[in-house]
């Protein structure tokens, strides 16, 4: 944890942090809906569907990390998000409702 003095020497801009989190959140909720569509079309049921969602949203986070965050953050220090937990796991809860909605819709349209 950086001390107060270090934060004052190189401050973290709250607005940019919020903007970053919001961008990530938008991406995750949009992709969660698309994962729901694909899970429904594939006809996954119960645990399969949730595992599908878990795997693919972690994959999205990983791609986001590799392509957008890592190139600049590894040289300048990790200061683009509030913490690793929010980055990796925050999107899971954000997108879950959208995932279930589209999953149910397309499962109903295609299978049942």
């Amino acid at each position: 944890m950086p001390s107060e003095l270090e934060l004052q020497i190189s401050p973290i801009v709250q607005e940019s942090l919020v903007h970053n989190s919001r961008t990530l959140q938008n991406l995750q909720s949009l992709t969660a809906s698309l994962f729901g569509v694909s899970a429904g079309i594939l006809g996954l049921e119960s645990y399969d569907g949730f595992l599908f969602y878990l795997a693919f949203s972690l994959l999205t986070s990983a791609l986001f990390y590799l392509v957008r965050v890592a190139p600049s953050s590894l040289t300048a220090g990790p200061r683009y998000f509030r913490g690793p937990f929010e980055f990796w796991a925050g999107g899971l809860m954000n997108g879950l409702a959208g995932f279930i909605l589209t999953w149910t819709l397309f499962y109903g349209l295609v299978r049942a």
Binding site: R22, S29, A32, S33, A97, G98, I100, L101, T102
Partner: peptide
């Protein structure tokens, strides 16, 4: 209950349509 699912899950659609 489809109505309730819509209440909870349409946030991403609105994000897409109207901005965040």
């Amino acid at each position: 209950s489809w109505y309730f699912l819509c209440i909870f899950g349409l946030q991403s659609v609105f994000n897409f349509l109207l901005g965040s």
